[in-house]
Design a protein around this nucleic acid. Sequence first.
DNA 1: GTCTATAAATAGATAGAC
DNA 2: GTCTATCTATTTATAGAC
Lengths: 208, 208
Amino acid sequence: MKKVRDAEASKARVFDAAAEEFALHGFVGAKVDRIAARARVNKAMIYYHFKNKAALYRAVVGDMFAATAARLRELRASNLTPAQQIDEFIAIVAREGQARKYFPRMWLRELADDGRHMGERNFADLTAIVSILAAILADGQKAGVFRPMPPFVVQVGIVGPLFLFLATGPLRSTAALKARIPISNISTDVLIDYVRAMTKGALSAQRP
Amino acid sequence: MKKVRDAEASKARVFDAAAEEFALHGFVGAKVDRIAARARVNKAMIYYHFKNKAALYRAVVGDMFAATAARLRELRASNLTPAQQIDEFIAIVAREGQARKYFPRMWLRELADDGRHMGERNFADLTAIVSILAAILADGQKAGVFRPMPPFVVQVGIVGPLFLFLATGPLRSTAALKARIPISNISTDVLIDYVRAMTKGALSAQRP
DNA sequence: GTCTATAAATAGATAGAC
DNA sequence: GTCTATCTATTTATAGAC
């Protein structure tokens, strides 16, 4: 019993340490030795809890995707208007991404890697997320409030700004210093509002 | 003389091969052996032409940044209106990024790495780019056509969608198949228009 | 300028004792 | 469940011949 609780605790520590390590160094750059050190666990324990480095990685990605897909399915089951659903889509992606500090970095890397390290399960969740956005856009077009636009364009228009921002805190601070730009503390709410304004401005059916 | 031309040619092949390799695998994942094979050059030649892997990387990043910064300085010297300068800023970043297929992926990775592999020169160019955007925004605010917005927010709102799109061609094709979304061939012009509409929609001073 | 050979370090994974 | 020791493979970089 005691052992079981310890096992769960050490497995959770491995998960957290791995998430941080993958975010900072990418799949290839992440070192199992460092994950073990970070988790205060013997390296062999990582292979006891998870099959290997790849499986550990997929578990971390899966946590974000499963949570996001679940929240989006709830959204889709609501009866909000298409415009409101876009607002909520943006807020959900932003909040789930912010709740997992490591994830935006991991995702930028995984995109650059063409999804090379994702498993079937990860891919299914990603597909679900894109399909939900496509459905919202289709509803909005049918209602005449959105102009036609390929879902992937809208997707990168939402995820791009959100994740680039969430992933680049330290770099922005450094750049702000060097460029002598005031380092205003930008809240996630400001960011969400901006992405909402961008997206609806660009999707709006009636434009000059 | 013949040798010199050969040297220039092989150095150029190393540059191209390295750019491709860094884009596909990141700084850590890039293998010098693969760069040599790709460039059809002996591995030792890489160290003959460039100091080491890091210097080679900085040269590739520098090519994009120097070109972009130069074009933006020209833009800044023009007498276009702030709104027109934003449109041109977006087009320049998109076109320079598209002219270097490898770069958007490299940049997503470098952002996730907090700029860890950049040199002083790279950083100076990056700073110049951000400063130019900040100046355009300040002009627009002064003229009353843009609402106040931190430059970094606008920056991620432009670079995020552009580079996420440019970096993810193959992945989008795969996802489109799995999600049964029509794989429309989206042109860079459509993308540029969308990012322009997004940015100006979100910056517009008079909004509901 | 070009190539071979190799030094030196590092990393993923596992066997096997406790 | 936990730890030590180690095997095997890779990888950056250079020395030195041509």
